[in-house]
Design a protein around this nucleic acid. Structure first.
Lengths: 340, 340
DNA sequence: GCGCGGTGTGGGAGCGGTCACACCGTCAGT
DNA sequence: ACTGACGGTGTGACCGCTCCCACACCGCGC
């Protein structure tokens, strides 16, 4: 039998004040590093804090200051993508590092069901966080809308729905897609197709647009297979369809590495060699690309940097209280590996 | 020039009360679904809430009720693992679903640097959450210790450091490892090695123990390679070493699927066929296993179920205020695929 | 001796809720 | 007609902290 958990009352600022023989005002000053505190009082308070084991009550502080020292990281993705997509983890880590350096706490909230969406909205409105970072927002995302309505400092990762004028950070998907397609062309490929995905958001549409721009006159819409998500499964199916449409295809741009890995699987099954028969490139520079056989040429996007940049922009808004600039693009690199 | 963000004062319960022509007490009753409110008052309050756009201030409520309606999900892992390990995502989703159903908010906190550790501890002590779920705690983890000291409801995923008597949920790593090794034996393999990892925590040690138990007299410690983390890289290196130690090896138990995938890469490079020359099994049933060539036989662990179960146990403690039972083991399945 | 600016300190008034209690009708039971 | 139970409501105290004003004290120059 364990004891019935006494759960004794936690020490408050009053206890500290009493212990140190000063008033709560002085304790509060010490806690907040304010000036005009005598060395003796400061010392007495510090030992009192240690003695009674005092920790600031965050709720009380939030209520009094009308702020929280926390920033929300909102992930709105179906389960499968969250688990599959390494970018989200990297963005999260980048944001965490930046916030940590500024002594802000990151709290990540994930939205799966509609019910979650409802609850997260309330959580945000309730003042538990001072700002928000939203990843992978899609068209007409209710969360983005309510954050905009709340007037809460916020940055989106990925260029959003442009109706709400929210600031964002992202990469130049179009330019990067164009570049990698051009390099594919420069290796002598002539019949080049694309497995497109995520067309319900900017990244997907821009990658397709870049592909199209690179090909110019040679662009053939029949060689573009449009799939749903950036997943392995999309790659498997998409490649199968592409082979059926154009058996003589010799180059493929997969809209993500996961798709590329799936495509590779289909090509292997079909007995086509990569890069011998077909050149294949992906996008993201995720683990998928590095561990594929052969390793995929791809576009590296600075996922950690995106998270860090988003965090900085949110903090800037929180601190200054001003409305933000429009958007920021971070540079990408092309990584040339064995697959093309 | 955008307007200087008026940031108008948010409506409070007073505003609602005034608008509806009742007192704050009655509004509070409606908000909390308490009985003894006349239909007319209820209706007036509901329209008033809608009209003034009222949302409960969470900080105030937390302060008054001394609780927060939120549960922390603490991930304490080096970056690389967080991004690589699909289990964590799955556990997170499982926990989120369970908490969501109970109308609790999950906030996930990740600990990367020591500074994070410090800040998270304060965050927890500050009363922003009512309980915590800790994943992948290691020996002597400072966070687990401070949570234990706080007397905060808490459940660990994976059997922890047994000095602190915290409740946990986990799987029977030992039993599962034993089973899959036995099945490997039953396919006629005779010289069986293991690439062990994570020996600084229970899961790693137990998997090794199960392996040993399955082999009994035939166990040969020379055929166990001890690596660090459950990563692809560990698999690549571990397998190379195993081949060097015992070129005639014909069966390998990889302590995780990521390790198995890495091992596969080395075997492919060495010209050994799987399952022809060597039978290989993994652990986790993650995407690594399903997408390896050939797909890995492995142990499926109910990651989502672990998260859900952990959430339930935390909530139970929060609600009852009682100290918890010891630990819970969830069942595992063996998935037989092409690799052995 | 007096006014004055700069330090250091105490304490009241919120922040926005919840909760317990007091109170007020209404209506059934005696 | 009186009592009491009960549904419905208002109100004050309080949760723990910050902010700010008032005040005490100090040495200083006039």
């Amino acid at each position: 039998m364990t004891a019935p958990t006494p759960r004794q009352r936690r020490a408050t600022i009053f206890d500290v004040a009493a212990e140190a023989g000063v008033s709560r005002g002085t304790v509060s000053r010490v806690l907040n590093g304010a000036p005009y505190v005598s060395p003796s009082a400061r010392e007495a308070i510090e030992t009192a804090i240690a003695k009674v084991g005092y920790v600031r009550n965050r709720a009380a502080r939030n209520l009094a200051t009308q702020s929280s020292g926390a920033i929300a990281f909102i992930v709105h993705e179906p389960d499968a993508v969250f688990v599959d997509d390494p970018n989200i983890g990297a963005i999260l880590l980048g944001a965490n590092a930046a916030l940590s350096a500024a002594d802000y706490q990151l709290v990540s909230l994930l939205i799966d069901t509609d019910r979650d969406s409802q609850r997260v909205t309330e959580y945000l409105a309730g003042g538990s966080v001072d700002g928000a970072i939203i990843v992978s927002a899609r068209e007409g995302d209710p969360i983005s809308r309510s954050i905009a309505d709340l007037g809460m400092p916020c940055v989106m990762v990925g260029r959003p729905d442009n109706q709400l004028q929210l600031p964002w950070v992202g990469i130049d998907n179009r330019g990067a897609a164009q570049q990698i397609t051009e390099r594919l062309l420069s290796t002598g490929r002539r019949r080049i197709g694309m497995i497109a995905a995520g067309l319900d958001r900017d990244s997907g549409r821009d990658r397709l647009a870049g592909f199209r721009a690179a090909l110019g006159d040679r662009y053939d819409d029949a060689l573009v297979v449009r799939t749903g998500l950036y997943t392995y499964a999309s790659g498997v199916d998409g490649m199968a369809e592409l082979l059926r449409i154009a058996p003589d295809i010799d180059g493929v741009f997969a809209a993500s590495d996961a798709i590329g890995a799936g495509a590779l699987e289909t090509l292997r099954g079909a007995g086509r060699s990569v890069p011998g028969d077909i050149g294949l490139v992906g996008f993201d520079d995720s683990a998928w690309a590095r561990r594929a056989q052969p390793a995929l040429s791809t576009v590296r996007q600075p996922a950690g940097g995106l998270g860090a940049q988003a965090a900085e922009l949110v903090l800037e808004q929180v601190r200054s209280g001003t409305a933000p600039g429009a958007g920021t693009l971070l540079p990408t690199d092309i990584i040339w590996r064995a697959s093309a």
